[in-house]
């Protein structure tokens, strides 16, 4: 356990000091802001929304920011073990005070930092723009209140909470590919190709795609995340939201899948030559 904590601490230290990750964070925020701005122009142009347009505008920005965050998470986690294998850091660690499983577990535990960082950057970028352009009151269209502000806030919060587990599982997926790869470049390429390939075909897989919940429910190019569903609700396009069944799938299944994936990554790291 102490080895896991040592790796967690050292990885946290490296992420915090990584200039490129700060640049990615700022980019995520900026892209979320631009997306929110585009959305606000559209909403204002339509003129049908009398109040509460800020929610949809903010969610559009956040979805774009989080989609970018997903790619940044995949690249960072895929580079992690494979890159350190190349540089010799893994060898160094196991000859000091760190067990092989701790190499993976420590890197898994550091996941909340980039995930929350991406979430915060997306939120700030989108919220600042949405707040400056529109209001966060009840959703009123043509004089009718469709949803109250509290209901809208509840939908957005639920969508966010249901999206986060998928991000943790995606981070674990990147670690598994990283554990199997010899170089950082091949790990990153494999991870991105697999994720984008699945993203492109998941619509046609329909129900079967749900078996890979972590990839199905992550914000991406073809977004079917809980946050995407919440966006439909706050725009007044849907009053149903996520079904309870899908919501519980999104909330719990990714954790189990993340554990399985990490177990596989530990098994690979235990048996491979470092």
């Amino acid at each position: 356990m102490t080895g896991t904590l040592r790796i967690l601490r050292s990885e946290f230290d490296r992420l915090i000091r990584s200039l490129s990750l700060w640049i990615v964070g700022v980019t995520v925020g900026a892209v979320a802001a631009v997306s929110a701005l585009t959305s606000s122009i559209q909403i204002l142009g339509q003129g049908s929304v009398e109040s509460g347009g800020g929610w949809a505008c903010m969610l559009d920005g956040m979805r774009t920011g989080l989609a970018l965050t997903v790619f940044a998470l995949l690249v960072t986690s895929a580079r992690s073990l494979a890159g350190d294998h190349e540089s010799g850091l893994l060898r160094m660690a196991v000859t000091r005070s760190v067990s092989r499983p701790a190499l993976v577990l420590g890197r898994l535990l550091v996941a909340p930092l980039p995930i929350l960082g991406g979430l915060l950057a997306s939120f700030l970028g989108a919220w600042l723009v949405a707040r400056s352009q529109l209001d966060f009151g009840p959703l009123i269209e043509e004089g009718y209140e469709i949803l109250s502000a509290e209901e809208l806030r509840g939908e957005v919060t639920l969508g966010l909470f249901a999206t986060l587990p998928a991000l943790v599982a995606l981070w674990a997926f990147g670690l598994l590919i990283s554990a199997c790869s010899r170089t950082a470049v091949s790990a990153v390429a494999t991870t991105l190709v697999l994720f984008v390939a699945f993203d492109l075909i998941k619509e046609s897989l329909s129900q079967e795609s749900l078996y890979l919940v972590f990839a199905s429910f992550a914000p991406s190019l073809s977004d079917s995340s809980p946050l995407g569903e919440a966006a439909q609700v706050v725009q007044g396009f849907s009053d149903r939201g996520f079904s309870d069944e899908l919501l519980s799938l999104a909330m719990w299944l990714p954790w189990a899948q993340a554990l399985l994936i990490v177990g596989a990554a530990v098994a690979v790291i235990r048996s491979r030559t470092l």
């Binding site: 080895g3 490296r14 850091l89 160094m92």
Partner: peptide, 30 residues
Amino acid sequence: GRLGVVFDQPVLLKRRSVAANLAYHAMIRG
């Protein structure tokens, strides 16, 4: 931490200072 190993290719964080490298390795050694 009773064993020290120096590999053929030095394992260093090249963008960090000499002192920061020692601190990083100490963090892992524990």
